[in-house]
Design a protein around this nucleic acid. Structure first.
Length: 425
RNA sequence: GCGACCUUGGUGAAGCGGUUAACACACCGGAUUGUGGCUCCGGCAUGCAAGGGUUCGAUCCCCUUAGAUCGCCCCA
């Protein structure tokens, strides 16, 4: 027997679960629009080079996580693993850099990464993201971050902080990386196997290694390691200070974390993550992250436009909202069930249902059975507020029997008044 | 890519190397031909993720594959 099942790491969203996604989407886009951010919808598939060249050939995303295939015309196609590079492509292709001022865009949709699924991680997942293109100005960083906080607030999530850092320009990072290598080299044999590998590949990762930060001998070594801020240029440092000042101005809670480094090549200067802290002050998975990309557009097309943006992991946010009881309003409900007790009544019931539905009243019907019992059961199952009974008696007397489960009443309502009766309750 | 643990009906789940795979909820039918959600009675997995092996015999033991969950790596 054929055994059908969904692709590993993908999800079906049925009924209430789909409702939660739509709820998030509508709140987030409403807030974004209040910031003057316009929606952009780009294809889910792109030329593979869009991601290879911009996310970074050495990044994990490109090296091992992309869904890439050849189409029938031998073109290398990739299911987008993230939004920024695809939108940069769109920005350039449509010469949007010619637009005056700052271009502000938001997007929503599925992303694909070939990874082992685990908590808050899927192979197909949804991201909501914001991208600004224009100048480099600290207040732009601040506005972008504040838009994210506005979304959190509207969703009802309060205990969010951003972890923020500046990783400077690429030269600053290279210097810093070399300094770390030099610093850790003499002690490296005391470190875990992962870190022995990291010292050559990505020495920055040693800084937040979970193993070595909990070992007595290595903990101190990490604590005393050089920090990025000492390797930033004067301009980068000043810029970062302005950003932080802007956040203070809007009372946005942040934690400067010099160990925060992000894995995508295009980031420069400001980088950040949104983290939820529970009652015990423990932090969750990052709900989203982002940063500035000063050179992304320039590297792609030579036009010097600064970019910045962030993205949320929608599944992670919805999971958190579930835990906080913020999705309790997402329930199946039904306004009315209309019961018909014989063939004639059933026809009349269907006609009434059509009228109700045209007025936006959610109405359900039993199709096959005329028995009162089975039709009452339907009403229970769909959690209907009103139960309207049509039978021989009602047809003769030109009334409907209407039960209101909320007020626990039953009365006869004249046929001509039924719509008003329901609408006024 | 690596590791841990798991996979029994519509759902939650017991179960032991050996005849009909508990129990509960849900569902269907009846008791009850215009007032249900209570009660009572009856029905409901030739099958225990898939495939192979060991065995006289496996849902329970072994192997392989797929998938779920949770870690590492990395990320949203």
């Amino acid at each position: 027997m054929a055994n059908y099942q969904k692709i590993k790491g993908t999800q079906d969203f049925i009924g209430v679960d789909a409702m939660k996604i739509r709820k998030f989407e509508s709140i987030a886009s409403l807030v974004a629009k209040s910031y003057g951010i316009k929606e952009i919808i780009t294809p889910i598939i792109e030329d593979s080079n869009v991601f290879v060249k911009n996310v970074g050939e050495d990044s994990d995303i490109v090296k091992k996580e992309m869904y890439t295939f050849l189409d029938k015309g031998e073109r290398s196609i990739t299911l987008r693993p993230e939004g920024t590079a695809a939108i940069a492509r769109c920005f350039i292709e449509n010469k949007m850099y010619a637009n005056p001022g700052v271009t502000k865009l938001f997007y929503y949709g599925p992303m694909f990464r070939y990874e082992r699924p685990q908590t808050g991680r899927y192979r197909q997942f949804n991201q909501f993201g914001v991208e600004y293109y224009g100048t480099q100005a600290p207040l732009m960083d601040v506005e972008i971050i504040s838009s994210a906080f506005a979304i959190f607030k509207k969703l009802g999530i309060n205990d969010i902080k951003i972890k923020i850092n500046s990783i400077g320009d690429s030269e600053s990072r290279k210097n810093f990386s070399n300094a770390l290598k030099e610093y850790f080299r003499p002690y490296i044999n005391d470190f875990c196997e992962d870190c022995k590998r990291r010292i050559d590949i990505n020495p920055l990762r040693i800084l937040d290694c979970k193993v070595d930060n909990n070992k007595d001998d290595t903990k101190e070594i990490i604590k005393n390691a050089p920090t990025i801020n000492n390797y930033l240029t004067k301009d980068s440092l000043d810029y970062f200070e302005y950003v932080l000042k802007g956040l203070d101005n809007l009372n946005i809670p942040y934690v400067v974390d010099y160990n925060l480094v992000r894995g995508l090549d295009y980031y420069t200067d400001t980088v950040f993550e949104f983290v939820y802290y529970n009652d015990q002050g423990q932090e969750s998975l990052a709900l989203g992250g982002g940063g500035r990309y000063a050179n992304l557009i320039k590297d792609m097309c030579g036009v010097d436009v600064n970019g910045m943006g962030y993205a949320f992991g929608v599944e992670r946010l919805i999971n958190l909202m579930d835990n906080l009881g913020l999705n309790d309003d997402c329930i199946d409900y039904c306004d009315a069930v209309i019961i018909g007790l014989d063939y004639e009544s059933k026809l009349e019931a269907f006609k009434l249902a059509k009228n109700f539905r045209e007025e936006g009243i959610i109405t359900e019907m039993e199709y096959a059975s005329f028995s009162l019992k089975s039709q009452f059961k339907l009403a229970d199952r769909v959690n209907a507020r009103f139960i309207i009974i049509i039978g021989e008696e009602e047809r003769i007397n030109n009334v409907y029997t209407v039960k209101d489960k909320k007020l626990n009443t039953q009365e006869n309502v004249n046929k001509n008044d039924i719509l008003k009766y329901i609408q006024n309750k």
